[in-house]
Design a protein around this nucleic acid. Structure first.
Lengths: 146, 146
DNA sequence: AGGTATTTCATACTTTAGTATGACAACGAC
DNA sequence: GTCGTTGTCATACTAAAGTATGAAATACCT
Protein backbone atom coordinates (compact mmCIF):
# COMPACT_ATOMS: atom_id res chain seq x y z
CA UNK A 1 0.00 0.00 0.00
CA UNK A 2 2.83 2.39 0.83
CA UNK A 3 4.53 1.65 -2.48
CA UNK A 4 1.34 2.52 -4.30
CA UNK A 5 1.14 5.95 -2.68
CA UNK A 6 4.84 6.66 -3.19
CA UNK A 7 4.72 5.57 -6.81
CA UNK A 8 1.61 7.58 -7.50
CA UNK A 9 3.07 10.65 -5.83
CA UNK A 10 6.30 10.42 -7.82
CA UNK A 11 4.40 10.08 -11.09
CA UNK A 12 2.25 13.10 -10.33
CA UNK A 13 5.36 15.06 -9.40
CA UNK A 14 7.16 14.10 -12.60
CA UNK A 15 4.15 15.11 -14.63
CA UNK A 16 3.83 18.46 -12.90
CA UNK A 17 7.52 19.23 -13.42
CA UNK A 18 7.20 18.25 -17.05
CA UNK A 19 4.29 20.64 -17.44
CA UNK A 20 6.11 23.41 -15.61
CA UNK A 21 8.99 23.14 -18.06
CA UNK A 22 6.99 22.73 -21.22
CA UNK A 23 3.93 24.76 -20.35
CA UNK A 24 4.38 27.29 -23.06
CA UNK A 25 4.96 24.66 -25.72
CA UNK A 26 1.80 22.84 -24.81
CA UNK A 27 -0.44 25.84 -24.69
CA UNK A 28 0.99 27.67 -27.67
CA UNK A 29 1.24 24.50 -29.69
CA UNK A 30 -1.52 22.81 -31.63
CA UNK A 31 -2.07 20.11 -29.04
CA UNK A 32 -5.59 20.35 -27.68
CA UNK A 33 -6.45 20.14 -24.04
CA UNK A 34 -8.73 17.18 -24.59
CA UNK A 35 -5.92 15.15 -26.03
CA UNK A 36 -3.63 15.89 -23.12
CA UNK A 37 -6.30 15.01 -20.63
CA UNK A 38 -7.17 11.83 -22.50
CA UNK A 39 -3.54 10.75 -22.58
CA UNK A 40 -3.05 11.47 -18.88
CA UNK A 41 -6.26 9.63 -18.04
CA UNK A 42 -5.19 6.69 -20.14
CA UNK A 43 -1.75 6.49 -18.57
CA UNK A 44 -2.97 6.79 -15.01
CA UNK A 45 -5.74 4.32 -15.57
CA UNK A 46 -3.23 1.67 -16.46
CA UNK A 47 -0.86 2.79 -13.72
CA UNK A 48 -3.72 2.17 -11.33
CA UNK A 49 -4.37 -1.21 -12.88
CA UNK A 50 -0.70 -2.11 -12.60
CA UNK A 51 -0.31 -1.08 -8.97
CA UNK A 52 -3.40 -2.94 -7.91
CA UNK A 53 -2.27 -5.99 -9.85
CA UNK A 54 1.12 -5.90 -8.11
CA UNK A 55 -0.37 -5.58 -4.65
CA UNK A 56 -2.81 -8.42 -5.32
CA UNK A 57 -0.01 -10.63 -6.57
CA UNK A 58 2.04 -9.89 -3.46
CA UNK A 59 -0.89 -10.65 -1.17
CA UNK A 60 -1.55 -13.94 -2.97
CA UNK A 61 2.11 -14.92 -2.70
CA UNK A 62 2.11 -14.22 1.04
CA UNK A 63 -0.98 -16.32 1.53
CA UNK A 64 0.56 -19.18 -0.37
CA UNK A 65 3.85 -19.08 1.50
CA UNK A 66 2.12 -18.97 4.86
CA UNK A 67 0.16 -22.05 3.92
CA UNK A 68 3.22 -23.81 2.59
CA UNK A 69 5.00 -24.04 5.88
CA UNK A 70 2.15 -25.53 7.81
CA UNK A 71 2.76 -28.97 6.45
CA UNK A 72 -0.28 -31.18 6.60
CA UNK A 73 -0.13 -34.90 7.25
CA UNK A 74 2.72 -34.24 9.63
CA UNK A 75 2.56 -35.36 13.24
CA UNK A 76 3.48 -32.89 15.94
CA UNK A 77 5.43 -35.04 18.37
CA UNK A 78 5.70 -32.32 20.97
CA UNK A 79 1.96 -32.10 21.19
CA UNK A 80 1.78 -35.89 21.23
CA UNK A 81 4.03 -36.03 24.28
CA UNK A 82 1.93 -33.43 25.99
CA UNK A 83 -1.17 -35.60 25.71
CA UNK A 84 0.49 -38.49 27.52
CA UNK A 85 -0.68 -40.98 24.91
CA UNK A 86 1.34 -44.19 24.68
CA UNK A 87 2.57 -45.60 21.37
CA UNK A 88 -0.20 -48.13 21.19
CA UNK A 89 -2.83 -45.60 22.03
CA UNK A 90 -1.51 -43.28 19.37
CA UNK A 91 -1.62 -46.11 16.88
CA UNK A 92 -5.23 -46.83 17.77
CA UNK A 93 -6.06 -43.13 17.60
CA UNK A 94 -4.75 -42.89 14.05
CA UNK A 95 -6.87 -45.83 12.93
CA UNK A 96 -9.82 -44.37 14.80
CA UNK A 97 -9.37 -41.11 12.87
CA UNK A 98 -9.45 -43.08 9.63
CA UNK A 99 -13.02 -43.98 10.46
CA UNK A 100 -12.46 -47.60 11.51
CA UNK A 101 -14.67 -49.36 14.07
CA UNK A 102 -13.22 -50.93 17.19
CA UNK A 103 -13.60 -54.37 15.62
CA UNK A 104 -11.80 -53.28 12.45
CA UNK A 105 -8.94 -51.78 14.45
CA UNK A 106 -8.70 -54.99 16.44
CA UNK A 107 -8.46 -56.99 13.21
CA UNK A 108 -5.77 -54.75 11.77
CA UNK A 109 -3.65 -54.91 14.90
CA UNK A 110 -4.38 -58.60 15.65
CA UNK A 111 -5.94 -57.72 18.99
CA UNK A 112 -9.27 -58.37 20.64
CA UNK A 113 -12.04 -55.79 20.58
CA UNK A 114 -11.80 -55.57 24.38
CA UNK A 115 -8.26 -54.33 24.12
CA UNK A 116 -9.26 -51.67 21.62
CA UNK A 117 -12.08 -50.57 23.86
CA UNK A 118 -9.67 -50.19 26.73
CA UNK A 119 -7.31 -48.17 24.55
CA UNK A 120 -10.13 -46.02 23.23
CA UNK A 121 -11.35 -45.30 26.73
CA UNK A 122 -7.88 -44.22 27.73
CA UNK A 123 -7.56 -42.08 24.62
CA UNK A 124 -10.84 -40.34 25.37
CA UNK A 125 -9.71 -39.65 28.90
CA UNK A 126 -6.31 -38.31 27.86
CA UNK A 127 -7.77 -36.11 25.15
CA UNK A 128 -10.58 -34.98 27.44
CA UNK A 129 -13.23 -36.16 24.98
CA UNK A 130 -16.61 -37.74 25.52
CA UNK A 131 -16.88 -39.44 22.15
CA UNK A 132 -14.45 -40.77 19.59
CA UNK A 133 -15.56 -38.14 17.11
CA UNK A 134 -14.62 -35.46 19.61
CA UNK A 135 -11.27 -37.12 20.17
CA UNK A 136 -10.63 -37.18 16.43
CA UNK A 137 -11.45 -33.50 16.18
CA UNK A 138 -9.11 -32.71 19.09
CA UNK A 139 -6.37 -34.89 17.62
CA UNK A 140 -6.57 -33.11 14.29
CA UNK A 141 -6.28 -29.73 15.94
CA UNK A 142 -3.27 -30.92 17.93
CA UNK A 143 -1.85 -32.31 14.68
CA UNK A 144 -1.16 -35.68 16.26
CA UNK A 145 -2.95 -37.56 13.48
CA UNK A 146 -2.24 -37.33 9.72
CA UNK B 1 -12.82 -7.48 -19.12
CA UNK B 2 -15.44 -6.07 -21.45
CA UNK B 3 -16.96 -4.06 -18.62
CA UNK B 4 -13.57 -2.52 -17.91
CA UNK B 5 -13.18 -1.28 -21.49
CA UNK B 6 -16.76 -0.03 -21.68
CA UNK B 7 -16.49 1.73 -18.32
CA UNK B 8 -13.18 3.30 -19.24
CA UNK B 9 -14.50 4.42 -22.62
CA UNK B 10 -17.59 6.00 -21.11
CA UNK B 11 -15.53 7.90 -18.54
CA UNK B 12 -13.21 9.23 -21.23
CA UNK B 13 -16.20 10.22 -23.32
CA UNK B 14 -17.88 12.04 -20.45
CA UNK B 15 -14.68 13.90 -19.68
CA UNK B 16 -14.17 14.96 -23.29
CA UNK B 17 -17.77 16.18 -23.58
CA UNK B 18 -17.33 18.10 -20.35
CA UNK B 19 -14.21 19.72 -21.70
CA UNK B 20 -15.88 20.46 -25.04
CA UNK B 21 -18.65 22.33 -23.26
CA UNK B 22 -16.57 24.15 -20.72
CA UNK B 23 -13.35 24.54 -22.69
CA UNK B 24 -13.40 28.32 -22.77
CA UNK B 25 -14.13 28.54 -19.06
CA UNK B 26 -11.24 26.31 -18.14
CA UNK B 27 -8.70 28.04 -20.32
CA UNK B 28 -9.82 31.56 -19.68
CA UNK B 29 -10.36 30.91 -15.97
CA UNK B 30 -7.74 30.85 -13.28
CA UNK B 31 -7.57 27.06 -13.18
CA UNK B 32 -4.12 25.97 -14.19
CA UNK B 33 -3.46 23.15 -16.61
CA UNK B 34 -1.40 21.28 -14.03
CA UNK B 35 -4.30 21.13 -11.62
CA UNK B 36 -6.66 19.78 -14.25
CA UNK B 37 -4.13 17.17 -15.29
CA UNK B 38 -3.45 16.22 -11.67
CA UNK B 39 -7.15 15.79 -10.93
CA UNK B 40 -7.68 13.71 -14.05
CA UNK B 41 -4.66 11.60 -13.21
CA UNK B 42 -5.88 11.14 -9.66
CA UNK B 43 -9.36 10.09 -10.74
CA UNK B 44 -8.22 7.68 -13.39
CA UNK B 45 -5.59 6.17 -11.16
CA UNK B 46 -8.27 5.11 -8.71
CA UNK B 47 -10.63 4.14 -11.48
CA UNK B 48 -7.91 1.80 -12.67
CA UNK B 49 -7.42 0.46 -9.15
CA UNK B 50 -11.13 -0.09 -8.81
CA UNK B 51 -11.57 -1.88 -12.11
CA UNK B 52 -8.66 -4.15 -11.47
CA UNK B 53 -9.96 -4.87 -7.98
CA UNK B 54 -13.34 -5.78 -9.42
CA UNK B 55 -11.92 -8.05 -12.08
CA UNK B 56 -9.67 -9.78 -9.55
CA UNK B 57 -12.59 -10.31 -7.21
CA UNK B 58 -14.63 -11.77 -10.04
CA UNK B 59 -11.79 -14.06 -11.06
CA UNK B 60 -11.33 -15.22 -7.48
CA UNK B 61 -15.02 -16.01 -7.20
CA UNK B 62 -14.90 -18.01 -10.41
CA UNK B 63 -11.90 -19.93 -9.24
CA UNK B 64 -13.66 -20.74 -6.01
CA UNK B 65 -16.81 -22.01 -7.66
CA UNK B 66 -14.85 -23.97 -10.25
CA UNK B 67 -13.02 -25.93 -7.58
CA UNK B 68 -9.50 -24.73 -8.41
CA UNK B 69 -7.58 -23.21 -5.55
CA UNK B 70 -9.91 -23.76 -2.64
CA UNK B 71 -7.78 -23.30 0.42
CA UNK B 72 -8.42 -24.95 3.76
CA UNK B 73 -11.44 -24.31 5.92
CA UNK B 74 -13.27 -23.50 2.73
CA UNK B 75 -16.19 -25.58 1.59
CA UNK B 76 -16.07 -27.01 -1.91
CA UNK B 77 -19.60 -26.46 -3.11
CA UNK B 78 -19.09 -28.40 -6.32
CA UNK B 79 -18.16 -31.49 -4.36
CA UNK B 80 -21.04 -30.81 -2.04
CA UNK B 81 -23.47 -30.80 -4.94
CA UNK B 82 -21.99 -34.02 -6.22
CA UNK B 83 -22.77 -35.80 -2.95
CA UNK B 84 -26.47 -34.95 -3.21
CA UNK B 85 -26.57 -33.77 0.39
CA UNK B 86 -29.35 -31.34 1.23
CA UNK B 87 -28.78 -28.12 3.17
CA UNK B 88 -30.00 -29.61 6.40
CA UNK B 89 -27.95 -32.75 5.97
CA UNK B 90 -24.88 -30.65 5.31
CA UNK B 91 -25.58 -28.63 8.42
CA UNK B 92 -25.83 -31.80 10.48
CA UNK B 93 -22.67 -33.15 8.86
CA UNK B 94 -20.70 -30.08 9.91
CA UNK B 95 -21.83 -30.42 13.52
CA UNK B 96 -21.11 -34.14 13.34
CA UNK B 97 -17.57 -33.37 12.23
CA UNK B 98 -17.17 -31.08 15.22
CA UNK B 99 -17.55 -34.15 17.39
CA UNK B 100 -21.09 -33.53 18.63
CA UNK B 101 -23.44 -36.36 19.57
CA UNK B 102 -26.85 -36.74 17.95
CA UNK B 103 -28.50 -35.34 21.05
CA UNK B 104 -26.20 -32.31 21.08
CA UNK B 105 -26.86 -31.62 17.42
CA UNK B 106 -30.58 -31.92 18.10
CA UNK B 107 -30.29 -29.37 20.91
CA UNK B 108 -28.32 -26.93 18.80
CA UNK B 109 -30.77 -27.11 15.93
CA UNK B 110 -33.89 -27.31 18.11
CA UNK B 111 -34.84 -30.69 16.67
CA UNK B 112 -35.54 -34.12 18.11
CA UNK B 113 -32.87 -36.79 18.24
CA UNK B 114 -35.00 -38.89 15.88
CA UNK B 115 -34.68 -36.26 13.20
CA UNK B 116 -30.93 -36.13 13.59
CA UNK B 117 -30.74 -39.90 13.37
CA UNK B 118 -32.69 -39.80 10.14
CA UNK B 119 -30.38 -37.12 8.77
CA UNK B 120 -27.29 -39.00 9.86
CA UNK B 121 -28.52 -42.20 8.23
CA UNK B 122 -29.07 -40.31 4.98
CA UNK B 123 -25.64 -38.70 5.25
CA UNK B 124 -23.99 -42.08 5.74
CA UNK B 125 -25.79 -43.45 2.71
CA UNK B 126 -24.92 -40.48 0.50
CA UNK B 127 -21.29 -40.48 1.56
CA UNK B 128 -21.09 -44.25 1.28
CA UNK B 129 -19.99 -44.64 4.89
CA UNK B 130 -20.77 -47.23 7.53
CA UNK B 131 -20.04 -45.07 10.54
CA UNK B 132 -20.10 -41.37 11.31
CA UNK B 133 -16.36 -41.34 11.78
CA UNK B 134 -15.98 -42.68 8.26
CA UNK B 135 -18.38 -40.04 6.96
CA UNK B 136 -16.36 -37.30 8.68
CA UNK B 137 -13.16 -38.61 7.11
CA UNK B 138 -14.79 -38.69 3.67
CA UNK B 139 -16.26 -35.23 4.15
CA UNK B 140 -12.85 -33.80 5.04
CA UNK B 141 -11.29 -35.29 1.95
CA UNK B 142 -14.07 -33.87 -0.20
CA UNK B 143 -13.58 -30.54 1.58
CA UNK B 144 -17.26 -30.20 2.30
CA UNK B 145 -16.68 -29.53 6.01
CA UNK B 146 -14.49 -26.78 7.53
C1' DA C 1 -53.59 -28.25 -8.64
C1' DG C 2 -50.66 -32.21 -8.37
C1' DG C 3 -46.17 -34.25 -8.08
C1' DT C 4 -41.60 -34.18 -5.93
C1' DA C 5 -38.15 -33.22 -2.59
C1' DT C 6 -37.24 -31.71 1.92
C1' DT C 7 -37.82 -31.63 6.66
C1' DT C 8 -39.69 -33.21 10.64
C1' DC C 9 -40.89 -36.83 14.12
C1' DA C 10 -42.01 -41.45 16.13
C1' DT C 11 -41.54 -46.37 17.33
C1' DA C 12 -39.15 -50.53 17.51
C1' DC C 13 -35.16 -52.73 16.83
C1' DT C 14 -30.01 -54.09 16.23
C1' DT C 15 -25.39 -52.85 16.53
C1' DT C 16 -21.57 -50.38 18.11
C1' DA C 17 -19.38 -47.49 21.50
C1' DG C 18 -17.95 -46.60 25.94
C1' DT C 19 -17.43 -47.59 31.33
C1' DA C 20 -16.04 -50.10 35.30
C1' DT C 21 -13.53 -53.49 37.19
C1' DG C 22 -10.36 -56.99 37.64
C1' DA C 23 -6.67 -59.79 36.10
C1' DC C 24 -2.18 -61.26 34.19
C1' DA C 25 2.30 -60.88 31.72
C1' DA C 26 6.32 -58.27 30.22
C1' DC C 27 9.58 -54.69 30.71
C1' DG C 28 12.50 -51.35 32.66
C1' DA C 29 13.87 -48.42 36.73
C1' DC C 30 15.66 -48.03 41.21
C1' DG D 1 13.30 -58.04 43.81
C1' DT D 2 9.77 -54.77 43.97
C1' DC D 3 7.26 -51.04 41.74
C1' DG D 4 5.25 -48.45 38.05
C1' DT D 5 4.05 -48.53 33.27
C1' DT D 6 2.39 -50.61 29.35
C1' DG D 7 -0.19 -53.85 26.91
C1' DT D 8 -3.32 -57.45 26.77
C1' DC D 9 -7.94 -59.61 27.62
C1' DA D 10 -12.51 -60.67 29.84
C1' DT D 11 -17.14 -59.86 31.79
C1' DA D 12 -21.01 -57.15 32.62
C1' DC D 13 -23.19 -53.26 32.09
C1' DT D 14 -25.00 -48.55 30.21
C1' DA D 15 -25.20 -45.27 26.58
C1' DA D 16 -25.10 -43.94 22.09
C1' DA D 17 -25.34 -44.84 17.25
C1' DG D 18 -27.53 -46.60 13.38
C1' DT D 19 -31.58 -49.13 10.61
C1' DA D 20 -36.22 -49.72 8.98
C1' DT D 21 -40.53 -48.06 8.36
C1' DG D 22 -44.26 -45.03 8.32
C1' DA D 23 -46.28 -40.59 8.47
C1' DA D 24 -47.26 -35.75 8.03
C1' DA D 25 -46.31 -30.81 6.94
C1' DT D 26 -44.00 -27.62 3.99
C1' DA D 27 -42.12 -25.85 -0.08
C1' DC D 28 -41.03 -25.80 -4.74
C1' DC D 29 -41.92 -26.59 -9.60
C1' DT D 30 -44.61 -27.00 -13.68
Amino acid sequence: MRSIIIGFGLLILCLLILFQIGEVNFIKGNVKLEVIVAIVAFIFFFVGLYFNYQSQKKAAAEKLSSNQFTDENQIDYDQLKRTGLTQREHEVLIKMAKGLSNQEIANELYLSESTIKTHVSNILFKLDAKRRTQAIQAAKQLKIVP
